[in-house]
Write a protein that binds this DNA or RNA. Structure first.
Lengths: 138, 138
DNA sequence: TTATATAATTGTAATCATTACAGATTACAA
DNA sequence: TTGTAATCTGTAATGATTACAATTATATAA
């Protein structure tokens, strides 16, 4: 799949983020790789194409994107922070065997809760763990 | 609230965990302090009473408890791993202002999901973030 | 009881992810 | 063109967690 640089640039500008080369490339990577990558994965992959890219820039850029709600963090596992370009409401499933993270649809908005009267809710995350279909077949 | 050592001991024995002094004290702490403490919080508090206690022991013990399903991990924030003695299904709300974590009831078992056919689900977590009632009043 | 083996605990060192920071580079406006 | 601010980079610092070896405690067998 091919993304137009103009679209990425506009997306950044619409959030008041200056569209530098690095930021566009990182946004492009996230858009093309909806695999909930870690910082290390992003760095290793992009480093092949941009040898001068620094890991610090990836951290800085992702934090910038986070502030602007361009990405969301997935903290399903305590030792690995992952990033998701898809900020619509959906759940994440992590396979305890192969480690892969799957998206799934869930009606998170309408979950019935009790005990949060007068609380302002800004963010909802739903995480499942278990064994994926592939690993059961194998 | 006062807990009988016998109950704690039995709880450990029922999971095939040898009830050492340290393990009982850590389990007692978790039972008395349902505040979803971090390892550091547990260490600092217990260290006053047991100066010889090692942080490594707390890590080891918590991992042991995790394996035995005596506690569950809360990974609502990517930079702080917390532990919850209450393993029944409930949600966690983190206040983005004061940092406090609140429990809330939620019908997690019956959430309608799509896209997880043939998946075995072992664990479900629901995390909300926002502003708690106290912080809004202040 | 005593000797021995096994398990648990401890403290230090190693590891890994993330952030802090200062210098270099780039973008942009006067 | 020049100066200023923003961005990027690389290294060092930080902090959480784990690895590991030595010590201590516990359980078992003679």
């Amino acid at each position: 799949m091919k993304h137009h640089i103009e679209n990425l640039t506009e997306k950044l500008l619409s959030r008041n983020i200056k569209p530098s080369y690095q930021r566009i490339k990182i946004l492009e990577y996230l858009t093309d790789n909806c695999t909930h990558p870690t910082v290390d994965k992003i760095f290793c992959d992009l480093h092949k194409e941009i040898p001068t890219l620094s890991k610090t820039t990836i951290y800085n850029t992702l934090n910038l994107f986070l502030e602007a709600n361009l990405v969301r963090v997935i903290t399903i596992e305590d030792n690995e922070t992952r990033y998701d370009i898809d900020t619509t409401n959906h759940g994440h499933f992590k396979c305890q065997n192969c480690g892969e993270i799957y998206d799934f649809e869930a009606d998170i908005e309408n979950i019935k809760v009790d005990g949060l009267n007068n609380f302002i809710i800004n963010d909802k995350s739903l995480y499942f763990k278990g064994i994926c279909g592939k690993c059961q077949s194998a």
